[in-house]
Design a binder for these strands. Sequence first.
DNA 1: GATCTCATATTGTGATCAATAAATGATCTT
DNA 2: AAGATCATTTATTGATCACAATATGAGATC
Lengths: 247, 247
Amino acid sequence: MRIDKTEDASNGGTETAKKERGHVHGHVLRYMRRGLMVGAFLPGQVMSLRKLAAGFGTSPMPVREVLSRLVAANALEETKGGSVRVPRLSPEKLSDLFAVREMLEGMAAELAAKRASPALISELAAINKQLLVAIEKRDILNCLSFNQKFHFTLYEAAASDVLMPLIESLWLQFGPTMYMSLLIPSMPWNASDHEDILAALKDGNAAAAKKGIVHDIRTTCKALLSVAGSQGIELPFAQGADLQFDY
Amino acid sequence: MRIDKTEDASNGGTETAKKERGHVHGHVLRYMRRGLMVGAFLPGQVMSLRKLAAGFGTSPMPVREVLSRLVAANALEETKGGSVRVPRLSPEKLSDLFAVREMLEGMAAELAAKRASPALISELAAINKQLLVAIEKRDILNCLSFNQKFHFTLYEAAASDVLMPLIESLWLQFGPTMYMSLLIPSMPWNASDHEDILAALKDGNAAAAKKGIVHDIRTTCKALLSVAGSQGIELPFAQGADLQFDY
DNA sequence: GATCTCATATTGTGATCAATAAATGATCTT
DNA sequence: AAGATCATTTATTGATCACAATATGAGATC
């Protein structure tokens, strides 16, 4: 039984699943984080340790560690049985979440604006262009992906390894709900705030950049809450659809 | 084979070592969290999985999960070898940490003030009284403990399960450094801000409560930085002293 | 036909094992 | 005598195992 493992290793290069010794859980972690932010998992969905491990082709052990970390980051919650699932956010919690987002990300944007290099600005502009294309094509997955990329590359420029983990924690929390809401046709989508932010960065106007981010967040929150209020955030199709994430 | 297990179960109550079925890691987690906040571990100290497990009398497995969560919360960092250790904070990071504290805990204090009940206020007053006693006696452990308790019972009243985990993450990060700095005789200690906060709560003045908290945090930060600036935050006695926490 | 109960299967938890990589100490060389 | 290299030891990692609890499903009874 161990022999075939060795053979796989000798096949080596082909066995891509085997690579990166000592960093299996790192791979799994990145995968899951991105999956949460970008909508591969749905609120209420329970994550089975063994099934996930089978999906990744590893033993349950690395997955256990990853899930443990995600629970610690409040990205997942554990049921009484010890299983973990994607939390289902109440409108109140979602509102709280976005209020804190405004503070933290507003602060990050302000700091970033003060350090923004021309290279950063053009990078952000490029990302925003891709985002606009995704919006045009109603490509929800890429909408979320590029939107996330826009915000995070901006915040990254703030160079605060205190703020970033906190912001990431928040994004992991509202990510799944975000994806769900975007599926609703009435959800408005525009990137006008992003344009304002880019303009503010070019002017070196930190306060305006902060204001742009706060407005962007507030707009998103209102849209999310209106959807939640109308038909309840308690989902369409919540439980079943285990969309496989293959991006 | 199942029989003897059943017998053990019938002996049951005597088998205290078998205690608290299914939540050994919960016990370990609480212990470690409190230990970090209250100074049982020192910056730079490496946490050995096996040694900790031996200390807790369990297998390395539950400890592994706990350390994993603490790393996820940025309370611990991992070395290239996969070991985890208590992070050593640079003055810059410590400054960032306290800047974020001001925002988050200021917000929490504001919310809490709006919901403060007489019972809460008297509870906080009682805690503060204990804190004053600890200060009088130069009892560093209880200083930290009651100070933490004061802040957290206040924030708890904000009833935000978004803010609380973030604030806890911050406290876990600066906890060890805090303890170290308190060992320095020149470190000033007073709870005058707490008195102001209590007065603000009695008046139902949320803005004043927020201001009190912010001032308290800022004062602490300045004191910490002055200590860090004078003799470097790179510690006295950093590595060795594995004080056993037995409170 | 609906509900309660029991048996089965699945899941998480804690422990142990094999293997890899790092750290430490000792020995050899310069 | 000091530094470097190599071997030994120890550390985490990923896998597997055994147990306990929970959830699921079928069957029987009301």
